[in-house]
Nucleic acid binder design. Sequence first.
RNA 1: GCCGCAGUGGUGGAAUGGCAGACACGAUGGACUCAAAAUCCAUUGCCUUCAAAAGCGUGCUGGUUCAAGUCCAGUCUGCGGCACCA
Length: 805
Amino acid sequence: MNTVYQPKSIEPKWQKLWEEAHAFEAKSDFSLPKYYCLIEFPYPSGAGLHVGHPRSNTAMDIIARKRRMEGYNVLYPIGWDAFGLPTENYAIANHVAPAKVTRENIDHFRRQLKLLGFSFDYSREVNTTDPNYYKWTQWIFLKLYENGLAYKAEMPINWCPSCKCGLANEEVVNGLCERCGSEVIRKVKNQWMLRITAYAHSLLNGLDSLDFIERVKLQQRNWIGRSEGAEICFDIASTNEKMRVFTTRADTLFGATYMVVSPEHPLIGRLSDRIKNMDELVAYAKEASRKSDFERTELTKEKTGVEIKGIRAINPATAKEIPVWVSDYVLMSYGTGAIMAVPAHDGRDWEFAKKYDLPIVEVVAGGDVQQEAYTDVSTGTIVNSGFMTGMTVEEAKQAMLDKLVEKGLGESKVNYKLRDWVFSRQRYWGEPIPIIHCEQCGPVPLKQEDLPLLLPSVEKYEPTDSGESPLAAIEDWVNVTCPACGGPGKRETDTMPQWAGSSWYFLRYCDPHNQEQFASKEVLDYWMPVDWYNGGMEHTTLHLLYSRFWHLFLHDLGYVSAPEPYLKRTSHGMILGENGEKMSKSRGNVINPDDLVGEIGADAFRMYEMFMGAFDQAIPWSMNGARGCKRFLDRVWRLQGMLDNKCPTITKDMLHPIHTAIKKVSEDFESMKFNTAIAAMMTLVNTFYDKGSVTKGEMRLLLLMLSPVAPHMCEEIWQIQSYGEPIYLQKWPKHEDRYLVLQQVEIAVQINGKVRGRLMVDSSLTTDEANDLLSQNETVRALTEGKQIVKVVFVPGRLLNIVVK
RNA sequence: GCCGCAGUGGUGGAAUGGCAGACACGAUGGACUCAAAAUCCAUUGCCUUCAAAAGCGUGCUGGUUCAAGUCCAGUCUGCGGCACCA
């Protein structure tokens, strides 16, 4: 008889047995009910597994293991998001091939994950850097291209001078490069773009029907930034030119006392003959374009601008001529690149008008517009506005819009903040973009049979100062014949961003070895959509949004049946160091998973990660807390010493504690309240210890409940005590309602809401019977002695509150 | 500036409007031991008190209610997201 719990020998044993039995491989029997659990596939960095990875992995492992026990055919896959800059930078620094580094890192990661006993289906591993995989990433890109959703454009992009690489908007954090922290500058480059804006509407509306945690929905909604308003046409006086503006406040049109256009606005060029201060405007535009986004945001306090001399616009409501200004606070990339300025009711316009002494005309009463802009839309009344005077803001918005439509001067309009996705990277370690540039034909896509376009081996991976990818230096790779006309062509040398491979990996898991298609429709129809996806909040406006976009697109082409890829999305909190700071090598507060498995074992490690606190919150690590979980598993193990191995039933007085625990654990696992689920099991074990014995039937239920959290130890005890077939083949226990209610319960007796006594009563006690206690029960009578009873409140099973004077 | 989330013991955290502090960590005392580790038992929100018993207590100020950590109004602090988006 094993008297000491030894995870070191138990854990490898079961990991081997599970692997040999193919225990966790998803079955290809499509008649079974399916469940698809997904975690974000890791980036196999050289640093190895972080304690943050197991948080998400264990949570979904618990769900996956529970689902299997509930009879589902479960897909819980794993793979490697292996393209990316850190690997490339490591390769450059150490003069090794990125492919080799990647291979080693993956092997290291896989070994570390296997130590933790996750029930991944390793037979379906995908690797984004495998040509058999990125062939299909390139194929999807070509589909986007064929459908006009991938295009090349000359435009200012976010450029990281340190990474020597363009970045997507989503990769710029506070004006700094998300990867290296360098200040991002604006650089005009010819870039591949994906038209994600074409899906702004679907990406927004799709959210409504999805079971995503609210903060994910909210963050995506804010990022997409839908805004409803009107586009209004202003005439330019004494010309045939018109200028359109977008506004959400059509009700304030009478108060528009000037206009502002962005420095890049095309009107300036078109009217250059009439403009008297062209030199000044050109100089201003040049200055503005030099500013990085960081500088532009830093300078928010003080607005700058130049009046366009020689042209005036006409306010369509007042028919008055108003000046037109240029300022870089108006962005060319949003709306029409021009605004009507209503200084009385917009903070920015107000600030600008004060600085340049422009007229401020109040059109919504309620504030003092000489002191500050009055922007409240809920209480003000329209004034100084002709036919709209006296209306509320909402009424006036509609009235003005109707008037504009009638006169052909405007229309209702929806704008989104979402921008198209910069898809080019001037780096080596990414998927080559399968396009050939031909002087005759322009960009020509590769034919499907020519995919994958392999990433060639190069001598040097260093990015170039010219802003071209290292691929540009390989002449015999770059110079090819045009597939369309046979003339000379050059390959595209930019590569795709890391987000490309991760935008569809969950589809490949369904059919990972398919050589003919990215995945067959039949298989996709069975497995998709993903039933439950857990991942980090940091991906909300990156991977999560991008992959929804690709999936919506593939749905439109008919390759996948459902529009949305993920039915449910949850998110885990970060694990911080013991000092409450973010874990990092430089802070010296990193916990190494391998060391931890060596000290307390994988089961205790898994359990602690689930027990340490609320799953969705950031929590500091506590080594003592982790040891506490090991101590609990020791206690469970030692229950074998008091086990009545002959008794298959449950002792009468244990029915209530056990069924309560089953209910609590089952429900809490589903709502990811793992900490309270584990607490319930600890309470149950404490009850066994208090009683001094446990029957085989009682132990059986405990092991079944605990097995998703601590699978190795539970399987071991299960085997030692001869329960039969392994736990992973067993059924998940169900509670029975009739055991949840106790015969007798202790209730609190309150006087004016303060607890003054306790009483054991029948749990079926009615309100009438409770009222009888007032005269019949000694305790209650003593408490109310000499007092006038005003009111009695009885809450069954809880308390009796007597209100007295 | 706007949007969201969170403030509960020494610590991590529990509490369908119904006995605040479950469960764990840590601490203190004790048992076992030559000793230590492990284990077991007891105590552990604050305060007054020999004790019995009472009072106070979920960031702060009010309100609703028989009853508020929970609901409402205001306010402070911390965290996260967005940010010249018209």
